[in-house]
């Protein structure tokens, strides 16, 4: 690790001021950043500890829930309002990492965690367009079990590893950010980018901007929603495929559907096509399979992750069936 200075931001304005300085990086729980510094992938000169940023989880006047960026992942998952109104979010967070890591990780840091592509982490030995733009991508033609099947590019086939962000994508969450030029909010589905020819640019966050909060709008379908994660071991592993989903069924027809997939793309993958396919359909196996087919029709797997296409379809159909059993 290269030498580094450390300071604590006392307030959001302090964090914004310090975040704008060259070489400065914000430090949440450190579960991703400290590891990547040790591996030589990240080399900040100054760490600005933002764990002191507000982390309250509160209901706004319009019924939205606002989660402060400093909220620890474990606190979000266990909060009574999240458990009762947005169970898919509690389950997604609880499916991620371990209890120790969830106690450390912050909401802001979770959204900005970097890919777990092994070539990205191997600063000394592998070529990677994300870490060193223009150097090539050793994943293509390499070990691709954890890599993308949707939305990838010839420059990068990495996946976004967050479970929490998959549920947030399905829930139409908004990310509140602030910088020297003021504050703005953007949909979580527009926050992360597809790799294109700039895989080093991962989000729409401008240099110097700070995540201050995540907002969950009121939702009719969220109270009966679910999150299912398929992985190589039963717990404490990143997703091969995950599904966050919620349905509203009225008069025997699907009137609303919200679905997102994890483990398949460079960003949490909102399944717009599957949602459109389900609209107005009777909730049965045939409709669920058709929706899954529609979503995965554009999949471009690699030799090492062909299995993910079938796995994603089956997991999606199974989660939708499970939601109907609950509502029956």
């Amino acid at each position: 690790m290269t030498p580094v200075q450390y300071r604590r931001a006392d307030s959001a304005s302090d964090a914004i001021r310090l975040a704008g300085t060259a070489g400065h990086r914000l430090l949440g729980g450190g579960t991703n950043l400290v590891d990547l510094m040790r591996k030589g992938v990240e080399r900040p000169d100054t760490l600005v500890d933002v764990t002191g940023l507000p982390g309250a989880i509160e209901e706004a006047a319009d019924g939205s829930i606002v989660i402060g960026a400093g909220a620890r992942n474990s606190a979000i998952a266990a909060h009574p309002l999240i458990r009762s109104r947005y169970p898919m979010l509690s389950r997604a967070i609880l499916a991620g990492a371990s209890a120790q890591i969830r106690n450390m990780a912050t909401a802001g840091g979770n959204l900005l965690q970097r890919t777990r592509c092994v070539y990205f982490a191997d600063a000394a030995g592998s070529r990677c367009n994300k870490r060193a733009p223009g150097s090539g991508c050793d994943a293509i033609g390499g070990f691709t079990r954890y890599h993308a099947i949707l939305g990838a590019s010839p420059a990068c086939i990495a996946t976004h590893p967050s479970d929490m962000a998959v549920a947030l994508a399905a829930l139409d969450a908004r990310v509140h950010v602030a910088g020297a030029d003021g504050a703005r909010a953007l949909p979580l589905t527009d926050f992360h980018r597809l790799p294109g020819d700039r895989p080093d640019l991962e989000t729409e966050l401008a240099p110097g901007e700070v995540i201050v909060a995540i907002e969950l709008p009121p939702s009719r379908l969220a109270p009966r929603s679910d999150y299912r994660k398929v992985r190589d071991r039963a717990s404490y592993a990143f997703a091969l495929v995950s599904v966050a989903a919620g349905l509203v069924i009225e008069d025997g027809r699907i009137s609303e559907a919200r679905i997102a997939l994890g483990g398949v793309a460079h960003k949490p993958w909102r399944a717009w096509r599957a949602e459109a396919a389900l609209q107005g359909e009777a909730p049965n196996e045939a409709a669920f399979v058709a929706a899954a087919e529609a979503e995965l029709a554009g999949a471009e797997p690699r030799p090492g992750n062909m299995f993910k296409v079938t796995l994603a379809k089956r997991t999606l159909a199974a989660v939708l069936s499970g939601l109907c059993e609950d509502q029956a």
Partner: peptide, 27 residues
């Protein structure tokens, strides 16, 4: 592992379990 993957370094900070390998002492 010194990278968050094994739990051998688990300690309690203010009563909560965390990984001491990924916690900077200054934090």
């Amino acid at each position: 592992c010194n990278q968050g993957a094994c739990g051998a370094c688990t300690v309690l900070i203010d009563g909560q379990r965390v990984l001491s390998c990924l916690t900077l002492a200054v934090q």
